[in-house]
Amino acid sequence: MPDPAPRTRHRLPVLATAVVLAAVAMMVWLGFWQIRRLHEKEALLARFAEARAQIAEVDWPAQWPTDPDKGYELTYRRAQLMCSAVTERSSMAGHNAAGESGMAQTARCALPGGGFALVVMGWSQSPMAGTAWQGGEVHGMIAPGQRLVADPPLAGLQPNALPDPADLPNNHLSYAIQWFAFAAMALAIYALALRKRWEKG
């Protein structure tokens, strides 16, 4: 009677194969999802660039829109507001218009009709500079994170670097390539494992 081993030696393990194929399918899906996110991010960056190019100012809203799409319409637009009073001051790491590192000086402003706005007054190499400014009219550009970067700067500070959508990361293509590479590697490793198993018989 012939040995049945030659007919069964190359049989695929059902459970292991199903697990590997499911993992590969998930990686491929994630790769295509990142490509879709790439197109969405490119469209958003183009929208931001168009907003930044507009010269006309908008009024800072008394309340920031809860709808993200409405918020995107304001981001990178030039805007104005009236700071009735400074309720809080802080400083954070930032760059001036020349690209030098230092401290961006910020003020939390109460608005006449209620609500608050975070104003980046300007730039200094010293923390907590520009404390003499107590409020007034502010013109500038809306940055991500609902901040108004003053332009011109306030309180005798140096100009802070204006927000630029070109500085936003867009790594979705590299992420997509990584997921596709992981899927290919998983298939290759599994194929090698099967080959070793079949060679052992």
Rank of each mutant, 00 (worst) to 15 (best):
G130P: 08
A25W: 01
T131S: 13
F116M: 08
A129Y: 00
A23P: 01
A93I: 01
V86W: 04
D69T: 07
Q34R: 06
A104L: 13
S101P: 02
W29D: 13
G94V: 00
G71V: 11
Q80W: 04
A85N: 10
C83K: 06
I142R: 00
G99V: 10
F32W: 14
W33Y: 12
G115F: 02
Q54E: 14
Q134T: 09
R47W: 09
H95Q: 12
E50G: 14
G102Y: 02
A110E: 12
G140Q: 00
C83D: 06
Q80M: 03
A23N: 07
W29P: 00
G136T: 10
R78L: 09
G136E: 12
L38P: 11
Q80A: 09
E73C: 12
R77C: 14
I35C: 05
E42S: 08
R52C: 07
H139A: 06
M121D: 05
A25I: 05
V138R: 04
A51L: 07
V120W: 06
V120F: 03
A53L: 11
A62D: 13
A110C: 04
G71E: 11
A79K: 05
G99T: 08
R47Q: 10
G102R: 00
R37G: 07
T66Q: 14
E50I: 04
Q125F: 03
R36K: 13
M26I: 06
Q54G: 10
L45S: 04
A98Y: 05
T87M: 07
W29T: 12
G113C: 04
M103C: 06
A97K: 05
W64N: 09
V120K: 09
V119Y: 00
R108M: 14
S124K: 01
E100F: 07
S101M: 06
A53D: 13
G99A: 03
R78P: 12
V58K: 01
M92K: 10
C83A: 11
L30N: 03
Q105R: 02
W123K: 03
A43R: 15
D67Q: 14
W133I: 01
L38A: 08
E50F: 09
S91N: 05
A43C: 07
E100T: 02
L44H: 02
C109N: 04
M121W: 01
Y76R: 14
R36E: 14
A46V: 08
V86I: 15
S101E: 08
Q125T: 15
I35D: 02
I55H: 15
G122Q: 03
V24C: 09
P61Y: 02
M103N: 10
A117Q: 03
E100H: 09
Y72L: 11
V24L: 05
G140F: 02
L74S: 10
P112N: 09
R89P: 01
V24Y: 00
P68E: 02
D59N: 11
M103T: 11
R36H: 14
Q63Y: 12
A129L: 07
V138I: 03
Y76I: 10
M128F: 15
R77T: 15
E73V: 06
V138D: 04
Y72M: 15
G115E: 01
P68I: 02
